[in-house]
Simulated scan of single mutants.
Amino acid sequence: MRALIFGATGQVARELARTAGGARLTVLDRAAADLSDAAACAARIAESDAEVVINAAAHTAVDRAEAEPERARAINAAAPGAMARAAAAKGVPFLHVSTDYVFDGAPGRPWREDDPTGPLGVYGASKRAGEEAVLAAGGDAVILRTAWVFSSHGGNFVKTMLRHGRAREEMRVVGDQRGGPTPARDIARALWTIARARRDGAGAPGIYHFAGAPAVSWAEFAEAIFAAAGWERRPRVTPIATADWPTPARRPANSVLDCGRIARVFGIAQPDWRAGLDRVVAELSKEEVS
């Protein structure tokens, strides 16, 4: 399979490259495809011989997006829409990664794909606009909503906790937001499964949820990270309220996603993030030694 991937330096794109199997990849970084230039991104698809296009690129700086809404919308909404239209014109599947931030985070059951959206900030609103643009393109598009992504590369919560936790006796971590931490490698594998299925005419286009289980709070996730690190002395995790950790952008309190549909349609099981966490911590430990 020939695949064109946007977002070369991101967590998911890196794992797509690591888990590609026999696929032939063209992976585009910012220099090759400026996400703020929707027309340029569409042109890269038009000139490609790819059998599937995967957009793993996004403006993911949630707080910075509040100060630069035009850039967030250009990258998260205009570019994916243009990509989806270009893929539709060529008749190839388009896979797009989205987020739990399209929801307002109201407490209750896990979010399903058909639940009403209600983003709390610029990032979530731009990602939701991107979803709408992709769906409006009318092609063979799959939108994969995920949450709390982590890996051994890039910036993420696991690396932040390990960086700061070693030198501190106490870590104050938000305890009233819940979600499903999701290893980037599992997201990549899910995308490859979907890509091959759509190439072969299996499954169905639309929106799907994919996030790790079991659901935890950020504070509980931090505890698990320090336990996985196996430090002789590890910091005490003190849960705090969201109100005690103010940020420019509001975060959803409930980011738990119902992943039943992706299992029914594509046979993709919800991953246990704890196995992925052990793998990521081991990779980071090897990097420290080397």
Rank of each mutant, 00 (worst) to 15 (best):
I268R: 05
I225P: 01
H209Y: 08
V216D: 00
I240T: 12
W273P: 11
R251A: 14
A197T: 09
G260A: 11
R234E: 03
L257W: 02
A222Q: 08
R196A: 13
A219R: 14
D186P: 02
A190V: 02
A229T: 04
L191H: 12
A229H: 08
R189D: 01
F226V: 01
A241Y: 03
Q270D: 09
A222D: 07
R234N: 10
T182S: 10
P271E: 09
A204Q: 07
G260E: 15
A241G: 13
T182K: 00
T247R: 14
E223P: 05
T242Y: 10
P181L: 12
Y208F: 15
A215T: 06
D200N: 11
D186N: 12
I194Q: 10
G230H: 03
V237A: 01
A228V: 03
S217F: 09
A227S: 10
A184M: 06
A222P: 04
E223M: 07
F266Y: 15
F221S: 08
I194W: 10
T193R: 07
A229N: 09
A249H: 02
R185P: 02
A219M: 03
R185N: 06
S217L: 04
P271L: 10
I194H: 14
W231T: 01
W218A: 07
F221C: 15
P214K: 15
A215G: 00
I262D: 13
A222S: 10
G212I: 00
R199P: 00
A263G: 15
R185F: 09
A222K: 02
V256W: 01
A241M: 07
W231C: 02
G260W: 12
W273H: 14
R196L: 14
R234M: 06
A228E: 13
C259Y: 01
P271T: 15
R261W: 00
Q270V: 12
Y208S: 07
V216H: 05
P246Y: 12
R274T: 12
I268Y: 13
G260Y: 02
S217H: 08
T242R: 13
T193K: 06
A197G: 09
R233D: 01
R233Q: 01
T242I: 04
F266G: 11
A211N: 05
R274N: 06
Q270Y: 04
D186H: 11
T247A: 01
T242V: 13
P248F: 04
P271M: 14
P248A: 07
R198Q: 08
P181G: 14
W218F: 15
P183C: 04
A215V: 08
G212A: 05
L191C: 11
A253D: 11
R196E: 15
W218H: 10
V216Y: 00
A211M: 08
G206Y: 02
G212L: 11
